[in-house]
C-alpha cells in the first residue's frame, strides 16, 4: 500500500539526521539544547522504528516505537530536566582532551574507522546495504557518545552521552526485529534506573559550589585521594 514511498531513502535520511543530532550533541555547550538534541534523536529513532514497521509489518517494531517514545522522548528527558533544575546550571562550557572543532573531525574519522574495521564482518553478515549503514552509524554513534562522556565536565552531559551510546546500540537492534521484546523492556528499565541513579548522584556532585570545594581540596592535598566514608 505504501509502495510509492521510497523506504530506503527515508531510512537513509533518518540515519543521517540522527548522526547530525549526534554531532550537535558533541559540540553544543548549552545544556538545554543538548537535551533537546537528545530528545530529537530519540524521536528520530522512533520514526526509524515506525518506518521499519511500515516496511516489515512486525509488531515488535511498533511496540518498540511506543516504548522509545515513552521512555526516551518523554520520561528520561523529564528526569534530566528535573535534575538540571535542581543543580541550577545551564551551560557545560569546558571541554576535556578534545575541543568541539576537533571532535567533529574525530567523529568523521570514527565513522570511517567503524566502516573499515567492520566492513568484512558486515559483508559476511548481510547483503542489505541499509543494515550495513545502520551498523556503521550505530557504532559510530556509540563511540561518539563515549567521546561525549569523556570530553565533557558535567554529569548531565555525561549522562546524555551515555544515552546517545545507548541510542547507537538501539539503531543496531532495530534492524534485527526478532530480538525478544522482554529484553528490550529490561534494557529500558535498566536505562531508566541508571538515569535515575545518575540524576540523584549528580545532584550531589554537580552542584557547582560543592565541586569547587572538592577541587580546592584536591589542590590542597594532591597526593591524598582516599579515606573518608
Amino acid at each position: 500500500m505504501i509502495d510509492a514511498i521510497p523506504i530506503p531513502g527515508i531510512i537513509q535520511a533518518i540515519l543521517v539526521l540522527i548522526m547530525i543530532t549526534g554531532a550537535l550533541i558533541v559540540t553544543r555547550k548549552d545544556l538545554l539544547s543538548l537535551l533537546s538534541m537528545y530528545r530529537l534523536q530519540s524521536l528520530l529513532l522512533m520514526f526509524l522504528a515506525l518506518v521499519l514497521y511500515a516496511e516489515s509489518g512486525n509488531y515488535v517494531l511498533l511496540q518498540m516505537a511506543v516504548l522509545t517514545l515513552a521512555s526516551k522522548v518523554l520520561l528520561i528527558p523529564y528526569i534530566i530536566r528535573r535534575m538540571q533544575k535542581e543543580i541550577n546550571i545551564s551551560k557545560d562550557i569546558s571541554f576535556h582532551y578534545i575541543s568541539p572543532a576537533y571532535s567533529l573531525f574525530i567523529t568523521v574519522a570514527l565513522i570511517f574507522f567503524s566502516y573499515y574495521s567492520l566492513s568484512k564482518t558486515l559483508n559476511e553478515l548481510t547483503d542489505n546495504k541499509l543494515f550495513y549503514l545502520g551498523a556503521v552509524f550505530g557504532i559510530s554513534l556509540a563511540l561518539m557518545g563515549m567521546m561525549v562522556t569523556f570530553s565533557r565536565k558535567k554529569i548531565v552531559t555525561k549522562t546524555i552521552g551515555y544515552l546517545m551510546m545507548e541510542n547507537g546500540a538501539l539503531i543496531f537492534s532495530i534492524f534485527i526485529t526478532e530480538l525478544p521484546f522482554l529484553i528490550e523492556v529490561l534494557i529500558i528499565i535498566d536505562l531508566v534506573i541508571l538515569v535515575l541513579l545518575a540524576a540523584i548522584l549528580a545532584v550531589g556532585m554537580d552542584s557547582s559550589i560543592e565541586e569547587f570545594q572538592a577541587k580546592l581540596e584536591r589542590i590542597k592535598h594532591p597526593a591524598r585521594n582516599g579515606g573518608t566514608h
Binding site: Y97, F113, L118, T121, M146, F150, K158
Partner: peptide, 20 residues
C-alpha cells in the same frame, strides 16, 4: 572520570581495530 573513560575509549578502538 574523564581520563578513565578515555582509556576505555582507546581500548575499545584498539580492540575494534584488531578485530577489523
Amino acid at each position: 572520570l574523564d581520563t578513565y573513560v578515555l582509556y576505555a575509549f582507546l581500548a575499545v578502538l584498539a580492540t575494534v581495530a584488531y578485530v577489523g
